[in-house]
Design a protein around this nucleic acid. Structure first.
Lengths: 232, 232
DNA sequence: GTATTATTAGAGTATATACTCTAGGGAGTC
DNA sequence: GACTCCCTAGAGTATATACTCTAATAATAC
């Protein structure tokens, strides 16, 4: 693997693990056992590394949120979107942790992120629209659908911060993918009142799979959980 | 005013304006035209300043969220809670911006904040319960009420971050209280499906007052808006 | 007045961090 | 061998930041 790619990979790994704020370019170089000079040969500065990682993240989510326009949506589709989005969130979880500061330091990133958000909000709204077409949820006005989509976005992007600040008792306790995906429970909570009688029970059953476990149970859980819905 | 209090006040002001990360103890001292030594005579370190500010914030919110148990809740109460919570959020808005890092650096704060969150979640849940008693919303199961309260909390505490990252086009654009309070629109969106027919129209009318304005209109708005619901 | 305590100034320090600069190695080409 | 180009090492730098230390001054008690 090329040095440049190794730098991106290690940076992402370290950022996710310790937070961007706590990872210096010197740390990244040391972790790869290369010199700082070498790192700066491949990237002009730290912001450039972050920006390239963002582009990957953006590409991944855009790919996941590509909505088929030639067929109706199914429950499986809906769960796929949720699972995928949380998987993406997990893989690039450093990003939303210090978002404001990252954007403050990079004009390009700020602009791109804003457009990215808009695309995501549109996608969420479109998913709701198609779910109504499919008879999974009751149809809503454009205004309500937009406001709901925004709430969904807020819950999705901030669920992790909630877990880290309000849930974790100890600094050392690391987040697991399983815990992160309990955010799906919260998102589905938003949909409950809009479900049609035909789909209510099946969605409620799916939701139940993501119900947060009691704190006692968290300890024995695997570091990277595989529990939950996986097939497409 | 005592130097100690002046330090707390200036710190809060600078933190809110520039973000805690961008305000050093030397900045605070310079802003007050006192020496760093003087500042460190009154506070052992920066964390201590932040912790004391948190205690004020906590006290304020706890005071606002004190729920009367001797009478039923009214719509006015509900709007008072919303307005108050967003006012508190505004006054201490630096806090939720870099929350994770603040908690990482101070064990006491982490512990206290966790308990604070739990109290807030309980209060929100209790408000929903009493609103159901008052016939404003339909009653719900404990489980649903908890999950809904958590969603309300997520929307409230992260609305500002959303505005800062996704909405603001320019770095220099500062948030206004009016914009922040559009978060109330989002919170009320969560309640819509649960409203009873008797109250539906009046809540929808209240909600309409907080509807986000079009971006074009934002420019002429006052820096600290006074638009919106104010009486109790 | 004098002793004591509380407060303040301001120079200084240890450490961290993003980034630079120069020298050179290795591989391919002529 | 010499030239070129890509890559790498590693010492070094400028700046920032949280915090310390000493000495002096103001306030208070007796």
């Amino acid at each position: 693997m090329k040095t440049r790619d190794k730098i991106l990979l290690s940076s992402l790994e370290l950022f996710n693990e310790r937070g961007e704020r706590n990872v210096t370019t010197n740390h990244i170089a040391a972790h790869l056992a290369i010199s700082p000079g070498n790192l700066y040969y491949h990237f002009r500065n730290k912001s450039d590394i972050i920006y390239e990682i963002f582009l990957e993240y953006e590409k991944l989510v855009d790919y996941y949120l590509d909505i088929p326009e030639d067929r109706p949506l199914t429950l499986d589709d809906m769960m796929f979107y949720l699972e995928s989005v949380f998987d993406g969130l997990w893989s690039y979880r450093f990003f939303h942790r210090d978002l404001e500061h990252l954007l403050d330091g990079d004009r390009r990133l700020r602009q791109d992120y804003r457009e990215f958000t808009d695309r995501c909000l549109d996608a969420i709204s479109r998913i709701f629209e198609k779910m109504a077409d499919a008879g999974i949820i009751e149809p809503q006005s454009d205004e309500l659908r937009s406001a709901m989509s925004l709430n969904v976005w807020l819950v999705i992007t901030n669920w992790m911060a909630f877990l880290k600040t309000a849930h974790a008792c100890e600094e050392s306790v690391h987040l697991t993918l399983t815990e992160l995906k309990q955010g799906i429970y919260q998102v589905l909570t938003l949909e409950i009142p809009y479900l049609t009688p035909a789909y209510r029970e099946s969605v409620m059953a799916l939701r139940e799979k993501y119900r947060p476990q009691l704190p006692e149970a968290r300890e024995v859980e695997l570091r990277v959980g595989t529990v939950g819905w996986n097939a497409v």
